[in-house]
Design a protein around this nucleic acid. Sequence first.
DNA 1: GCCGGAAGTT
DNA 2: AACTTCCGGC
Length: 724
Amino acid sequence: MKTPGDTGFAFPEWAYKPESSPGSRQIQLWHFILELLRKEEYHDVIAWQGDYGEFVIKDPDEVARLWGARKCKPQMNYDKLSRALRYYYNKRILHKTKGKRFTYKFNFNKLVLVNYPFIDMGSTGSSVPQSAPPVPTGAGTHFRFPPSTPSEVLSPNEDLRSPGGMFSTVARRMARGSVSDCSDGTSVNSEIEEGNGGTGEERGERGVSGGGGGPGGGGSYRSIIHPRLSHEALFRMYGGPGNPAAHPGSRGPAGHRIHQEPLSPFPVSPLPGPPGASLLAPPLSPALSMTPTSHLPYTPSPTLSPMLGSHFSFNPEDMKRYLQAHTQSVYNYGLSPRAFLQYPNIVIPQPHRPATDKASLNAERAAADRAERAGGGERAGDRHHHPSLAHSAHHHPQPPHSAHSHPHSHPIHHPLHLGEEPPHMSPFKFKLQPPPLGRKQREGQSKPRQSSLSSGSGSGSMSSTSGLGSSLSFGSDLSSASGSGVISASSSTQSLNSAGLPKIKVEPISDIESEEEVEVTDISDEDPDERENFSPRHFRVSNHHHHNNHLSNGTATAQHQSHDEDLDEDVFKAPAPPPPGLMPFFTSHHAHRGLTALKSEPVEPGESNASQSQAVSPGATQGKCIPLKLRFKRRWSEDQRMEASQEESDDKKVRPEEERDKARQTNGCVEMGEDLAGSGEGDGDSPPPLAYEGSLTVPLASHRRVSAELHRATAQLSLENKDC
DNA sequence: GCCGGAAGTT
DNA sequence: AACTTCCGGC
């Protein structure tokens, strides 16, 4: 679409869809189910049980009631709800566990892949319940699923954050009964916010950012984002920094997570991989978000597209994360490399930096922060991380099972440069390139110019507008948004200058390619084929086997599930280790910076970077129904700001919240979202550096922060959005 | 309880 | 498209 095209970037069409298509926007039942599953509060009503992805509706009437409340369908009942669930059978989103009453099983393959590519299933280790979907393992990794819907978003986020704490009270209240009103939502929100809300959220951010928490943090995102935007758009991806909270059990920073229940599936969420990513901590699920669209064969999965359904965010960081996640997921799931296609442009360099040492994460964070400010400083830190990451990746630390999947082999690698290639020393750059390897055009690095970009290659499909293909675009958007135009529109790359921001080039990609990418994505769905091709069966999770289908188990499920399961099984089973190389990049701050850095090639010469953008952003924040692009821009801007000056952040925070509040008020019902949200964790999580175990780990403080912020923002938006 | 067709709604 | 509603059948 051009959509934005004009502006220049272009995301694949699907990306925009969400907004466009009404259907996709609203919360989907499966999303809702996942939300409930992840919340402890609802464990009496619905909980993970059994095999991966399997859950039991303990209180059908209640679930129906909640669903009805969410959808403002007071007449909802289990019969109807179950009919809706049955429709998922064909979509393969889930299937019935035969022989067990009220028991269904998510087909994560589709869900995950599609919507949440990120998820790393890594080992879950202890915490994960069997049924829980793939959770990331260790503390670090977990990911949570992104809220697809705005509402979801929120809820999850909040959930994440506030476990028992702040929100919980409110949330709970709301959650169950009260939540439901369609009309009221607002009030609820307000309550929450008032009560905790503001703080809570902030905390989260702070936590993220600072770990320690200073207040400063940033609320900026929110402000930026505006709920409205969200309509759908927000981000789906999260990438947030991990939530500390996430691991209930394990972690501790927050410590308090509630406990995980055995039932609860995942302590963590599936998200992605980004190391820190797990922002959301909650246990969640894997499945995630499929978008409506997605399920199917889908298309585009991975990356963005899926998200689409609801919204996804384009934030640079998000993108990075997303990519990262995606990468991981690819590996993990054994997806085909193609998946990466979506982001063909992106090259991930690995920066190998000598590790500096910051012993503790905190230190790192601090560094990161500095770096951000400074521009380059952080990187050092990052690098350090990276290396480690890289190692891990290579080593395959995580996965026990994993075979190894090496990414290397995949074509993807090239583009990504995962681990192996040593990037140039310079600060890392993220380069967004067009298609992988020489795909079309550019082998060389010629940079296309804006005009050339798109047209050149072929703009075929998407393109036009953008050359971006994928990711890039957002950059441009951002820039534009900001006004600063850092990236100028479209396609050119800019280099950041100074400080060392990472440079990212965004080259216009041929559209065509992008589309192709899309195809890739599908993997999840269809894929059995693909999987095979690419993968990784190795990955399958052992657990799965045990329980499952194949084996037989007594449960009937196995068989009848058959077709579905096949797919499913594959998916779930194999958690994969995070990709080596990838992680590093993504993981770290780089990403952040990178994002910031992103440039379109043509771009402006100077740095437009952050500074400008930042400046711009402020005003912007508000938008309501803003096009995605704008949103991004705004977000972007803020991000930059934030990064740029944390100091400022404090001030900003204030505003943002205010803004948020406003926005929320405007919205209507909160209900579930809140409910869900309520559960949230506390934020606290923020984290500590927790352990990020996995490769990802590295997480950088900054990264986390950002993500955290994003999450919050998302959450807010989602809350706001819920409209009944 | 569960299934799935058919029609209607958003 | 994604349910919601209704319903007959197993």
